[in-house]
């Protein structure tokens, strides 16, 4: 026990290492948050292009602009989902943005662009999972494609999308642990540094594992809360089940 406390003291307290840990936590959260926003924006745009393109295809109509955009989206999805994010980060840092020293920007762009590809497919599959009859009912009443999407399809798709999107955010948070390869000082880098200085491995690495776990649990809770908020009829479902029995 005394050894444990001594290790704890050495890892977190000595040389004000907790200060570096907090700043590392800031880096992890900042990149996750910024990439998340970029990923969602990109994902929504790409999903919208792909869904509209599919919709026109059903109608045997052609729109050249949309065809080109759809092709670009396809290439984007294929490349991003077909290569490791670590390789993407290295290419972004050493090739595409070699002249930039702003590692936050490089990491945000890499993880945002990467996450966007997954978010796009999550949104698209969520939209596709809504029964086709719903779109037909909306259109048969005279609503436009956009009105049908925004009032009928998307509100229902969100229920399919949210759990998968929550998982994607969790994956994103954990993936940021590789940013130290471009020299960023996140919590993983902090643990590596502490281990290098103190020759202690147990305390720093299990420490950050616990921090990641706590962050993930918090995120899970947040998603569950949002799910409940966006499902107003869940309550009445419960009520109904109670009535039945």
């Amino acid at each position: 026990m005394e050894k444990f406390l001594a290790d704890f003291q050495q890892t977190f307290i000595d040389a004000e290492r907790w200060k570096a840990l907090i700043s590392g936590l800031g880096v992890t959260l900042k990149i996750t948050f910024l990439a998340l926003i970029l990923g969602v924006v990109l994902g929504v745009v790409v999903a919208f292009v792909r869904s509209s393109h599919d919709e026109l295809e059903i109608q045997h109509k052609k729109n050249n602009v949309l065809n080109v955009l759809n092709a670009i989206c396809q290439v984007y999805l294929t490349i991003i989902r077909g290569t490791p994010v670590m390789v993407q980060l290295l290419i972004m840092y050493f090739v595409i943005m070699a002249s930039s020293t702003n590692t936050t920007l490089v990491a945000t762009l890499t993880f945002g662009i990467n996450s966007g590809a997954y978010v796009a497919e999550i949104i698209r599959s969520g939209i596709m999972a809504v029964d086709k009859g719903q779109t037909e009912a909306g259109r048969s009443l005279g609503l436009s494609y956009v009105q049908t999407m925004s009032h009928i399809v998307i509100p229902q798709a969100i229920k399919n999308i949210l759990p998968a999107l929550g998982n994607e955010f969790i994956a994103l948070l954990k993936e940021t642990s590789i940013v130290n390869i471009i020299g960023m000082k996140d919590i993983t880098k902090w643990a590596m540094n502490v281990q290098g200085r103190t020759y202690q491995a147990f305390m720093p690495f299990l420490g950050i594992a616990a921090i990641y776990l706590i962050l993930v649990l918090g995120l899970t809770k947040l998603v569950a809360l949002m799910e409940r908020r966006l499902n107003p009829d869940v309550e009445s479902d419960k009520q109904r089940n109670r009535d039945k029995h």
Binding site: D131, G133, Q134, A137, S140, G142, S144, I152, D233
Partner: peptide, 20 residues
């Protein structure tokens, strides 16, 4: 077509009410 469809009501086999 949206304008014309407003004047044509349709009833489906599977009702297609909006569940939300």
């Amino acid at each position: 077509i949206d304008k014309r469809r407003q004047k044509m009501g349709m009833v489906f086999q599977h009702f297609n009410l909006f569940p939300h």
